[in-house]
Deep mutational scan, measured.
Amino acid sequence: MKVTIEENEETGKFTIKVKTEDGEEKTIEIPKENLEEILAKLPPNVEII
């Protein structure tokens, strides 16, 4: 699983794009305050880009 994290400076939010092993892609946008909480919940086999 690969996770790409991009900061949107205009909105102050982060866009998180997840690509699973089977090629499925999902995108979510979260507030900056929630980034550490989300990262802590990721499984250890995740590659963060």
Rank of each mutant, 00 (worst) to 15 (best):
residue 4 T to G: 02
residue 18 V to E: 01
residue 18 V to Y: 14
residue 3 V to K: 00
residue 17 K to Y: 12
residue 45 N to W: 15
residue 41 K to W: 11
residue 34 N to M: 15
residue 25 E to S: 06
residue 4 T to V: 08
residue 5 I to Q: 00
residue 24 E to W: 08
residue 40 A to E: 09
residue 18 V to G: 00
residue 45 N to R: 06
residue 37 E to A: 10
residue 37 E to N: 05
residue 43 P to R: 05
residue 14 F to T: 05
residue 4 T to Y: 15
residue 6 E to T: 13
residue 10 E to R: 10
residue 4 T to N: 04
residue 22 D to V: 04
residue 46 V to Q: 03
residue 42 L to H: 00
residue 33 E to C: 07
residue 9 E to M: 14
residue 36 E to H: 12
residue 40 A to D: 05
residue 46 V to Y: 11
residue 26 K to E: 10
residue 23 G to A: 03
residue 43 P to I: 05
residue 8 N to L: 04
residue 46 V to M: 06
residue 32 K to N: 04
residue 47 E to I: 14
residue 17 K to T: 15
residue 24 E to R: 08
residue 48 I to M: 05
residue 27 T to Y: 13
residue 38 I to G: 00
residue 15 T to N: 03
residue 46 V to P: 02
residue 7 E to V: 13
residue 6 E to V: 13
residue 21 E to L: 05
residue 3 V to Q: 01
residue 46 V to F: 10
residue 17 K to D: 02
residue 34 N to H: 14
residue 36 E to M: 10
residue 16 I to P: 00
residue 23 G to R: 01
residue 33 E to N: 07
residue 22 D to K: 07
residue 18 V to L: 13
residue 6 E to P: 00
residue 4 T to S: 09
residue 7 E to F: 15
residue 14 F to W: 10
residue 49 I to V: 08
residue 17 K to R: 09
residue 40 A to S: 11
residue 45 N to H: 10
residue 30 I to G: 02
residue 35 L to C: 06
residue 31 P to V: 09
residue 17 K to N: 12
residue 21 E to Q: 09
residue 36 E to C: 13
residue 21 E to N: 08
residue 10 E to F: 10
residue 36 E to R: 07
residue 23 G to P: 00
residue 48 I to H: 04
residue 43 P to A: 04
residue 10 E to P: 03
residue 45 N to F: 09
residue 15 T to Q: 05
residue 23 G to H: 03
residue 27 T to M: 12
residue 30 I to W: 03
residue 45 N to L: 05
residue 35 L to Y: 03
residue 33 E to H: 08
residue 48 I to Q: 03
residue 32 K to G: 11
residue 28 I to E: 04
residue 4 T to L: 06
residue 41 K to I: 11
residue 45 N to K: 03
residue 49 I to K: 02
residue 23 G to K: 01
residue 19 K to L: 15
residue 43 P to V: 01
residue 37 E to Q: 10
residue 3 V to N: 01
residue 19 K to I: 15
residue 16 I to M: 06
residue 7 E to P: 07
residue 19 K to W: 15
residue 35 L to N: 00
residue 40 A to V: 05
residue 38 I to S: 04
residue 33 E to Q: 08
residue 27 T to L: 09
residue 38 I to W: 15
residue 15 T to E: 05
residue 25 E to N: 04
residue 29 E to F: 11
residue 2 K to D: 04
residue 32 K to F: 09
residue 3 V to L: 07
residue 3 V to D: 02
residue 21 E to C: 12
residue 9 E to A: 13
residue 49 I to F: 06
residue 26 K to A: 11
residue 9 E to P: 13
residue 35 L to G: 01
residue 16 I to L: 08
residue 22 D to H: 08
residue 19 K to A: 09
residue 37 E to K: 07
residue 27 T to C: 08
residue 48 I to F: 08
residue 8 N to I: 05
residue 20 T to P: 03
residue 32 K to I: 08
residue 1 M to Y: 09
residue 22 D to Y: 10
